[in-house]
Amino acid sequence: ASVAVIAAGTQGNIFATSALRSMRFLQILRMVRMDRRGGTWKLLGSVVYAHSKELITAWYIGFLVLIFASFLVYLAEKDANSDFSSYADSLWWGTITLTTIGYGDKTPHTWLGRVLAAGFALLGISFFALPAGILGSGFALKVQEQHRQKHFEKRRMPAANLIQAAWRLYSTDMSRAYLTATWYYYDSILPSFRELALLFEHVQRARNGGLRPLEVRRAPVPDGAPSRYPPVATCHRPGSTSFCPGESSRMGIKDRIRMGSSQRRTGPSKQHLAPPTMPTSPSSEQVGEATSPTKVQKSWSFNDRTRFRASLRLKPRTSAEDAPSEEVAEEKSYQCELTVDDIMPAVKTVIRSIRILKFLVAKRKFKETLRPYDVKDVIEQYSAGHLDMLGRIKSLQTRVDQIVGRGPGDRKAREKGDKGPSDAEVVDEISMMGRVVKVEKQVQSIEHKLDLLLGFYSRCLRSGTSASLGAVQVPLFDPDITSDYHSPVDHEDISVSAQTLSISRSVSTNMD
């Protein structure tokens, strides 16, 4: 405001104040949320940038038409019409005319000016109207692209899951042992070998009828009888010197917790746990005396209480009078009846079946994303299906024409109403129809010849004498029936064969 007042002088105070007050009108834009329509302006900018070359070309040609039209109309009207006294007036008329506004304040009066105005109007309006069409088509394409992008975003994750499931299904095939990355992934998420051994031990116990592997080994086996189970490696608790092959000598807290839970599941009659010990102070733990958990001091820290809870689970003690015997301790020893080589084939089979199920689920979810969402998608899918159906029908028609023997030239002739090819031409065609016709002709010829021969033979049998045999009239074959199959017997006289037959029969009768 200060700059405006200084620039306008003393009389500019009122002007500056009114100008600043008129800017209050811009507050109405906040009512229509114009300040939060950044996406709309961004869309407009992207459309203009995408079609910038077309817009520049249309505007450039339109500007050239405007300059030439205004100049030529000015030359034609400057002497006869006072409205075109300057080139600026003519340029104003050209702008209003070519933009199809047409105020009518300035019009050419001479015939030359009117002809020039009409010609440049028809030429220039087309170029001035091009930017509107370019922007409209650009907006339509952009909206369609955003629509497809939205659908693509919805299909991206199911497609990625389907590709991942397909690759993992491919890589978990037993015949592709060189693909090891997927197996490394499952090695990292699978439970430890100790848990798998416990699982298979329970399965084997159920197969043995509820007997433990130790009891199965204690059962008497006759001499020479084959053992029911192959000899396997035996594993004891981590306190002993022997372990399962492939295990580490260090046992983690999870393994100890699972070991304690498995020992508690063996039965309360074979294992008696004394009350857990509780320390009397955060600094020292008295293991010899058993106290109640309700006497825990409230001033303990979080670490002390955590250690106390761990001691409740991981440090059970047995009383002296209830101490288990050596046999019970041997039964409680952890027996590992299986090795990694025995378990891994079954584990890989389970993983393979899981990968198949996940692949089928991913495939079903991806197919669900291909379903249409709204009416536009339904129409688009219907149009695509219609085009596909037309293509299939056209391909089927082409194959039928190839089989029947109607080529493209014959199809055009039928469409024009011309006469089709004759039967002889159809026979000569190298097509399925021509071959079928040729075979039918040959079969008819053979059938006719057989009928003639059978009739001749029956007449010979009825006559009974050589004289009557020679008097029999043998009809000749019709050459038209034989089609294109020409037998060497067709052109010979059958009477010669009949005479030869009669001579042979007379000779045979004389010999008798």
Rank of each mutant, 00 (worst) to 15 (best):
A165S: 11
A165T: 05
A166P: 00
W167G: 00
R168L: 02
R168G: 01
L169V: 06
Y170S: 10
S171F: 01
T172I: 03
S175I: 08
R176Q: 06
A177P: 12
T180R: 10
T180K: 07
A181V: 00
T182S: 06
Y185S: 01
Y185N: 10
D187Y: 08
D187H: 06
S188R: 15
I189M: 11
I189S: 08
I189T: 10
I189L: 10
L190F: 11
S192Y: 06
F193Y: 11
F193L: 13
E195K: 07
E195Q: 12
L196V: 12
A197V: 10
L198F: 10
H202Y: 09
Q204P: 08
A206P: 09
A206G: 07
R207G: 05
G209V: 06
G209R: 07
G210A: 06
P213H: 13
L214M: 06
L214Q: 13
E215V: 12
V216M: 01
R217Q: 09
A219S: 13
P220S: 10
V221A: 12
V221E: 07
P222T: 05
D223H: 09
G224V: 14
P226S: 10
S227A: 14
S227Y: 10
R228L: 06
R228S: 12
R228G: 08
Y229H: 14
P230S: 11
T234N: 10
C235R: 13
H236L: 10
R237Q: 10
G239V: 10
S240C: 07
S240T: 04
S242T: 14
S242P: 12
F243Y: 09
F243S: 12
C244Y: 08
P245S: 07
E247A: 13
S249N: 09
R250G: 05
I253M: 09
K254E: 10
K254T: 13
D255H: 03
R256H: 12
I257N: 12
R258L: 03
S261G: 11
Q263L: 02
R265L: 02
R265W: 05
G267V: 12
H272Y: 05
H272Q: 08
H272D: 14
P276S: 15
P279L: 14
T280N: 09
T280I: 15
T280A: 00
T280S: 04
S281C: 15
S281F: 05
P282R: 04
S283G: 15
Q286R: 01
V287M: 06
V287L: 03
A290P: 15
P293T: 11
V296G: 02
W300S: 03
D304A: 14
D304H: 13
R305L: 15
L314V: 13
S319C: 12
S319F: 02
A320T: 14
E321D: 00
E327K: 05
A329E: 12
E330Q: 12
S333C: 03
Q335K: 05
L338V: 06
D342H: 08
I343M: 11
I343L: 09
A346D: 13
A346T: 10
V350G: 11
I351S: 11
I351M: 08
R352P: 02
R352G: 05
S353A: 13
S353C: 10
S353P: 10
I354T: 12
R355M: 07
I356F: 13
K365I: 12
F366I: 11
F366S: 02
K367E: 02
K367Q: 02
E368A: 03
E368G: 02
P372Q: 00
P372R: 01
Y373N: 04
Y373S: 02
D374H: 01
V378A: 15
V378L: 10
Y382F: 15
S383L: 14
S383A: 06
G385C: 13
G385D: 11
H386Q: 08
H386L: 14
H386N: 09
L387R: 12
L387Q: 11
D388E: 02
K394T: 00
K394N: 00
L396M: 12
L396P: 01
Q397E: 02
V400A: 14
Q402K: 14
Q402P: 02
I403S: 03
V404L: 08
G409E: 03
D410V: 05
D410Y: 15
R411K: 09
R411W: 02
K412T: 03
A413T: 09
G417V: 14
P421S: 13
P421A: 15
D423E: 11
E425K: 06
V426M: 13
E429V: 06
E429D: 13
I430F: 10
S431T: 12
S431N: 11
M433L: 10
M433V: 14
M433K: 14
M433T: 06
G434R: 11
R435C: 13
V436G: 13
V437F: 13
K438Q: 10
V439G: 08
E440K: 13
E440V: 14
K441E: 09
Q442E: 12
Q442L: 14
S445C: 14
I446F: 01
I446T: 00
E447Q: 10
K449N: 03
L450P: 02
L452P: 13
Y457N: 14
R459G: 09
C460G: 14
L461P: 05
L461V: 11
S463Y: 06
S463P: 02
T465P: 04
T465N: 03
S466L: 11
A467V: 09
S468I: 08
S468G: 00
Q473P: 03
Q473H: 03
V474G: 14
P475L: 03
P475R: 06
P475A: 13
F477L: 07
D478G: 03
P479H: 09
Y485H: 08
Y485F: 04
V489L: 09
H491Q: 12
H491N: 15
H491D: 05
E492G: 06
I494S: 06
S497F: 05
A498G: 09
R505G: 05
R505C: 05
V507F: 04
T509A: 07
M511K: 12
M511T: 08
D512V: 03
